[in-house]
């Protein structure tokens, strides 16, 4: 019996029996973005390797079997953070840990810095990238939620050229994006909010670093007399993709920010239709959405200078 299993593994292509987790593939390590796009367009059953912190587990389990793996790790143009036209432009292959400690991120997009502390663990953030997280599109992931709160623009590259995708159009369903098979994320633009705006981020997970059962990201910009000029509230882990709670935002904008306004806005989170799964039922997620929204909005208010 054991011999039979051994024979089968040998036939499956492993010459070092027992040491190989993923199915065989050809490895490609382009140095230029255009070469990566060309490989992705040409090779059958190819997949991009970014930080590998979600893809490699799936390959180890053989949930994902590819013929070609295109490693983006050697493309310098895909890394870096810069302010461009009022937005923070982040290269898709910028590591999460580098963003966590980036002075530009802390200054211009503090919501992103705060959210990153909840993304996996230090070992996975050392490898994991922002572009990989966005393309993987796990509904409970923090970075897609932050991008939704900022109304990010995603720059998608293929041999056909480059196009900009608004974050609202990027997530099309459960772990699904608007990227076509030959497209890859090159960069993400996060529009910078006015200096002095407030941010808040809360999630509930069973352990630090786990995917959230539910979470929320909030941004508030206040004008004279603490009237809300702009508001963004995003839920994640609650529906199949990050969800902007527009009803909550509408209850805030144009009104003075106080405890009653925050309560009313957070109550709008009650209206969403949450998913149910092995981790939590829909009713519990709806409860968390409301409670965490209130906490995130309170943090954002405090950071914008209002004790609501």
């Amino acid at each position: 019996m054991q011999q039979l299993a051994m024979d089968r593994r040998v036939k499956a292509g492993g010459d070092d029996v027992g040491t190989m987790k993923p199915a065989p593939f050809e490895y490609h390590a382009p140095r230029q973005l255009k070469d990566a796009a060309e490989l992705l367009a040409r090779l059958p059953n190819a997949k991009l390797l970014a930080g590998g912190q979600s893809l490699v587990p799936m390959m180890n389990f053989r949930y994902v079997i590819v013929d070609h793996l295109i490693d983006l790790g050697g493309i310098d143009d895909l890394r870096g953070v810069a302010v461009v036209d009022g937005a923070l432009r982040i290269g898709a292959m910028t590591r999460q840990r580098d963003l966590e400690f980036s002075p530009e991120v802390a200054k211009h997009c503090p919501l992103l810095a705060e959210a990153l502390r909840h993304v996996g663990h230090r070992q996975t953030r050392n490898r994991g990238t922002i572009g990989g997280s966005l393309a993987h599109a796990d509904p409970a992931a923090e970075l897609p939620a932050v991008c939704a709160a900022y109304d990010a623009t995603i720059h998608a590259v293929s041999v056909r050229g480059i196009r900009q995708i608004a974050c609202r159009e990027f997530y099309t369903g459960f772990m699904a994006t608007a990227l076509t098979a030959d497209e890859m994320i090159a960069a993400i633009d996060l529009p910078i909010w006015r200096l002095g705006h407030g941010h808040g981020f809360h999630e509930f997970a069973r352990r630090q670093g786990d995917f959230a059962i539910a979470g929320t990201a909030a941004l508030l910009d206040l004008g004279a007399d603490n009237v809300v000029r702009r508001a963004a509230l995003t839920l994640f882990g609650v529906t199949t993709s990050p969800l902007r709670v527009e009803a909550a935002e509408a209850r805030l904008v144009g009104k003075p920010l106080d405890a009653a306004a925050i309560r009313a806005a957070a109550a709008a989170a009650w209206l969403v239709e949450p998913i149910s799964d092995i981790h939590a039922g829909g009713d519990y997620r709806r409860h968390l959405a409301q409670v965490l929204s209130a906490r995130a909005l309170n943090d954002a208010a405090r950071r914008a200078g209002v004790e609501a």
Binding site: K21, G52, Q53, V56, N60, Q123, T124, N126, R127
Partner: peptide, 25 residues
């Protein structure tokens, strides 16, 4: 599959799960 951390090593001075990297990387 990247959960337990037993395989943690330093790659260029930074911790990484060595089960989630290929040797060629």
């Amino acid at each position: 599959h990247g959960v337990c951390g037993a395989c943690t090593v330093l790659v260029d001075g930074r911790t990484a799960r060595s089960c989630l990297m290929f040797a060629v990387q």
